[in-house]
């Protein structure tokens, strides 16, 4: 097993990289060539189970083909079909070394263990490195909690916009009763005049709402929107009708006072001057005779 050119410095002269597999291939191939080892020595540790675990499937296909076509299937056929380089390439180094160790010990007359070396089954998850004693979770930590911003209260619409007030503008601290009294007084002054209510439009809310892109929906569909859809205000307020009704009720309580009922000479109460009278008898256009009436009847 000693080859020329070897030695401690051999690896340094060739780059300093230890080529363990090449060493195994050379050792096993030489042992087989020199009849120091037999193919059964290899298959002692490189069992069919090991081959089934580590050998690639194309090599298995090649092995099956050779075995089916060969008159005799033995360890030599298996080793020759697979080849020592492929065995050293795919089979774990511990098993190859176990083969070489048995061959060497037997050659030196030492006792050889009859039991094949059994490796632990391959684990898909490698053990954690010794330095990392602290285990890390496989899943990513949960993201930071994004708090939903509080809804902006409509009281503060802007820096220069005053807060909307429920009081009518210009009325100060007048109450609803004062407004009603004022409207009644105005209604008594001019009952028939349909004028818009004297109440000044109160700038209660902002006409166009600010677009809110926050959560909860859009516009009135927003879940947290306290506002409700509002119907349009009719042009004629029912309060106005109520006032007129009150007046009619008051008038209906008794008979309307007329001068006819009093029995006075109403003709004398209306002073008409003679100049205002029209002398229609002098006009020819309006003169109708009995003849005309008869011809019209026909």
């Amino acid at each position: 097993m000693h080859r020329g050119g070897g030695g401690a410095r051999w690896g340094d002269e060739h780059g300093g990289v230890m080529n363990l597999k090449a060493f195994f291939v050379a050792s096993l191939q030489t042992a087989l060539d020199l009849s120091i080892a037999t193919p059964e020595d290899i298959l002692k540790h490189v069992t069919p189970d090991v081959l089934a675990t580590y050998l690639p499937r194309p090599l298995w296909a090649r092995l099956f083909t050779a075995c089916l076509g060969a008159p005799k299937v033995d360890a030599q056929l298996v080793v020759e079909t697979i080849g020592v380089p492929n065995l050293c390439e795919h089979v774990p180094a511990q098993l190859i070394w176990a083969c070489i160790a048995d061959i060497g010990n037997r050659s030196l007359g030492k006792q050889v263990d009859e039991e094949p070396l059994v490796l632990a089954p391959k684990s898909l998850t490698p053990p954690p490195p010794p330095g990392s004693s602290r285990s890390k979770p496989l899943t990513a930590p949960p993201p930071d909690v994004i708090e939903k911003p509080a809804l902006v209260t409509p009281s503060k619409l802007g820096p220069n916009i005053p807060a909307p007030s429920t009081m009518p503008a210009g009325t100060g601290t007048s109450s609803l009763a004062d407004i009603v009294a004022e409207l009644e007084a105005e209604g008594s002054r001019d009952e028939r005049s349909i004028t818009p209510p004297s109440r000044v439009r109160t700038p209660t809310q902002q006409r166009f709402r600010q677009s809110q892109t926050g959560g909860g929906g859009i516009g009135r569909l927003a879940q947290n929107n306290p506002r409700r859809p509002q119907a349009g205000i009719p042009s004629v307020t029912p309060a106005r009708t109520a006032r007129r009704g009150e007046t009619e009720v008051e008038a209906g309580e008794g008979e309307p006072e007329t001068s006819v009922g009093r029995g006075e000479d109403w003709r004398s109460s209306i002073a008409v001057e003679e100049e205002q009278l029209v002398e229609w008898q002098a006009s020819e256009e309006t003169l109708t005779t009995t003849d005309d009436l008869e011809t019209r009847k026909r």
Partner: peptide, 27 residues
Amino acid sequence: TPDVLANHLPPDLLSRVLQASLAAGSM
């Protein structure tokens, strides 16, 4: 074919086939 067997049979079956063939001396 051997190629089909090698590519579809599980490893334990491959091992058992080879073991049986080695034990019997033929496949």
